[in-house]
Design a protein around this nucleic acid. Structure first.
Lengths: 181, 181
DNA sequence: CCTAACCATGTTACATGATAACAAGTCAAC
DNA sequence: GTTGACTTGTTATCATGTAACATGGTTAGG
């Protein structure tokens, strides 16, 4: 059940648009991964958080694919690599990453995914493909604005918003048989 | 931990605007409850579902408050009233209610809440007060539209959307000490 | 250098959330 | 009144998440 290979086709060179482009399209995933790690380091330097071995490894594991992983899936990987094998090990690392904007928690999946552009302070919307389980982040400002309008009328003070869409990514919509595992 | 009293102030008479007004404001909760049950019965009649004792009681329990309840909290109540005391009893009743549009599942809370206007076929947005745990439904069409726009650009076919906001309801924003338990 | 304070890591144990698989009861239609 | 679909109940197990405490490392002040 555990795979450690990146899942992305390594085809097209990295461009600036990758920063805002969803993860469904083929792309140079090792660069995608490396950039996210770099930006994560920058962000931590600003915020004062410490990037320890468990935390770094946890982030790397999440970055291997554009999927969300359960805490126990991450834990198995960490345990296999010599870190602790008890749930709090994984939960603490994941919580740290989420708090510092380096990863996201997917409420619908009870799972976690690496943030793909941690440089920005953002609360994105998520697109979750129900066929291949891949995940994309979208800038959610317009959506949040629409919600804030509605909530404002009621006097409710919105603090955090969860916006998660389930559906089919372009590849899986074309080839429902199983475009990409 | 288990309370069976409705939590709402029983003050103002029911008006048509209650249908679209969030649940944070004081209102005649017994009427609110009764209407939701009526509309639920109507909806089931249309759809062919059977309103059995467990299901009805489960819906009534959810309707007692404008909060979301965990499946085990519901189960405790059901067990105390002579229904089965095993998890599937609660999960099946809750699943039935959700499938028939009579209740909602709150992803952020891993919990369930009665739908307040089951007559409409809707996928609302939720406002969750982090202080008093009360819950309101908002018509989410504008929000979903904004999201569909963004997702459409990427070729992603959105099927279902979760929109849940956490924050402070008007009462708790004014009186952070503990406006209403 | 040393040590106190803080943080990170690890553990045990448990709480909470969810489902698979099977047995038995209910009810409507024929 | 028997068949067949649905509902309810059970046992057992799995998945997810946390509280509480012990240990170890880092670091700033003395």
């Amino acid at each position: 059940m555990i795979t450690s290979q990146p899942e992305c086709d390594k085809v097209t060179p990295l461009t600036d648009t990758d920063r805002t482009t969803p993860a469904f399209a083929p792309h140079d995933h090792s660069a995608c991964e490396a950039r996210a790690l770099d930006e994560a380091a920058d962000r931590l330097a600003e915020q004062g958080g410490r990037m320890t071995p468990v935390r770094r490894r946890t982030l790397e594991i999440l970055l291997e694919s554009h999927r969300a992983m359960g805490a126990y899936e991450v834990l198995d990987r960490l345990a296999a690599e010599g870190f602790g094998r008890q749930p709090p090990v994984a939960y603490r690392a994941l919580e740290f990453l989420v708090e510092h904007g380096l990863a996201h928690r997917l409420q619908r999946l009870n799972a976690f995914a690496a943030c793909l552009h941690p440089g920005h302070d953002h609360a994105p919307a998520f697109l979750i493909c129900r066929a291949c389980d891949k995940l994309a982040e979208l800038p959610a400002a317009p959506v949040r604005a629409a919600l804030a309008d509605l909530a404002g009328e009621t006097g409710f003070a919105v603090e955090r918003v969860t916006i998660e869409a389930v559906g089919l990514c372009p590849a899986c919509a074309e080839n429902p048989a199983g475009a990409e595992a």
